[in-house]
Amino acid sequence: TGEEYIAVGDFTAQQVGDLTFKKGEILLAIEKKPDGWWIAKDAKGNEGLVPRTYLEPYS
């Protein structure tokens, strides 16, 4: 299990392996990579890379 984050903006996948999401979606951070791209999972179970700058902790 990971930590929940809320998307603060829309993001469209730029390449294969990225995860597209919309502002307000809750994402589960699976792995926090030091380069600023995290592996996350959305509510539908889709998994991919997301930019850290689009996420804020969800409580």
Rank of each mutant, 00 (worst) to 15 (best):
1 T>D: 12
1 T>W: 13
1 T>L: 13
1 T>E: 13
1 T>M: 13
2 G>H: 14
2 G>P: 13
2 G>Q: 12
2 G>K: 12
2 G>F: 14
3 E>L: 11
3 E>S: 11
3 E>N: 13
3 E>C: 14
4 E>Q: 14
4 E>N: 10
4 E>M: 15
4 E>C: 15
4 E>T: 14
5 Y>P: 00
5 Y>G: 00
6 I>R: 09
6 I>E: 04
6 I>S: 04
7 A>W: 01
7 A>Y: 02
7 A>L: 03
8 V>D: 02
8 V>G: 04
8 V>R: 09
8 V>T: 12
9 G>L: 15
9 G>V: 13
9 G>P: 02
9 G>K: 15
9 G>F: 15
9 G>N: 15
9 G>A: 15
10 D>W: 04
10 D>N: 10
11 F>D: 00
11 F>Y: 14
11 F>N: 02
11 F>G: 02
12 T>C: 12
12 T>F: 12
12 T>N: 11
13 A>K: 05
13 A>H: 03
13 A>I: 03
14 Q>L: 13
14 Q>G: 10
14 Q>K: 12
15 Q>W: 08
15 Q>M: 11
15 Q>V: 10
15 Q>Y: 10
16 V>F: 11
17 G>H: 06
17 G>E: 05
18 D>T: 11
18 D>W: 15
19 L>S: 00
20 T>K: 04
20 T>W: 03
20 T>A: 10
20 T>R: 03
20 T>C: 07
21 F>K: 01
21 F>M: 06
22 K>Q: 09
22 K>C: 10
22 K>G: 06
23 K>P: 03
24 G>L: 03
24 G>N: 06
24 G>V: 00
24 G>C: 09
24 G>M: 03
25 E>A: 10
25 E>D: 15
25 E>R: 00
25 E>S: 08
25 E>K: 00
26 I>Y: 05
26 I>P: 02
27 L>I: 07
27 L>Q: 00
27 L>H: 01
27 L>C: 02
28 L>I: 15
28 L>A: 06
28 L>S: 07
28 L>C: 11
29 A>D: 01
29 A>G: 04
29 A>H: 02
29 A>I: 15
29 A>P: 06
29 A>Y: 03
30 I>K: 06
30 I>D: 02
30 I>G: 02
30 I>W: 05
30 I>S: 04
31 E>Q: 11
31 E>D: 12
31 E>A: 11
31 E>V: 13
32 K>E: 07
32 K>G: 04
32 K>S: 05
32 K>C: 08
32 K>Q: 08
32 K>F: 07
32 K>W: 06
33 K>Q: 09
33 K>G: 12
33 K>S: 11
33 K>T: 09
34 P>K: 11
34 P>A: 14
34 P>D: 14
34 P>W: 09
34 P>H: 11
35 D>L: 04
35 D>Q: 04
35 D>P: 01
35 D>F: 05
35 D>G: 13
35 D>A: 04
35 D>M: 04
36 G>D: 07
36 G>Y: 05
37 W>S: 06
37 W>Y: 09
38 W>S: 00
38 W>G: 01
38 W>V: 06
38 W>T: 01
38 W>D: 01
39 I>R: 10
39 I>D: 02
39 I>N: 05
40 A>R: 00
40 A>S: 03
40 A>D: 01
41 K>M: 13
41 K>E: 05
41 K>W: 05
41 K>V: 12
42 D>I: 02
42 D>W: 00
42 D>C: 03
42 D>L: 02
42 D>S: 05
42 D>V: 02
43 A>S: 14
43 A>W: 09
43 A>K: 13
43 A>R: 12
43 A>N: 10
44 K>R: 13
44 K>I: 09
44 K>T: 10
44 K>L: 13
45 G>P: 01
46 N>V: 09
46 N>E: 08
46 N>T: 08
46 N>L: 08
47 E>A: 09
47 E>V: 15
47 E>S: 11
47 E>K: 12
47 E>P: 04
48 G>S: 00
48 G>A: 02
48 G>I: 02
48 G>D: 00
48 G>Y: 03
48 G>F: 03
49 L>T: 13
50 V>Q: 01
50 V>E: 01
50 V>C: 05
50 V>F: 01
51 P>G: 05
51 P>C: 14
51 P>T: 03
51 P>Y: 11
51 P>M: 08
51 P>R: 07
52 R>A: 15
52 R>S: 15
52 R>F: 12
52 R>G: 15
52 R>N: 12
53 T>C: 15
53 T>I: 14
53 T>S: 15
54 Y>E: 07
54 Y>K: 12
55 L>K: 00
55 L>Y: 01
55 L>C: 04
55 L>E: 03
55 L>H: 00
55 L>W: 00
55 L>R: 00
56 E>C: 13
56 E>P: 02
57 P>R: 08
57 P>M: 07
57 P>I: 08
57 P>N: 06
58 Y>A: 10
58 Y>I: 12
58 Y>D: 05
58 Y>H: 10
59 S>Y: 13
59 S>V: 14
59 S>P: 14
59 S>I: 14
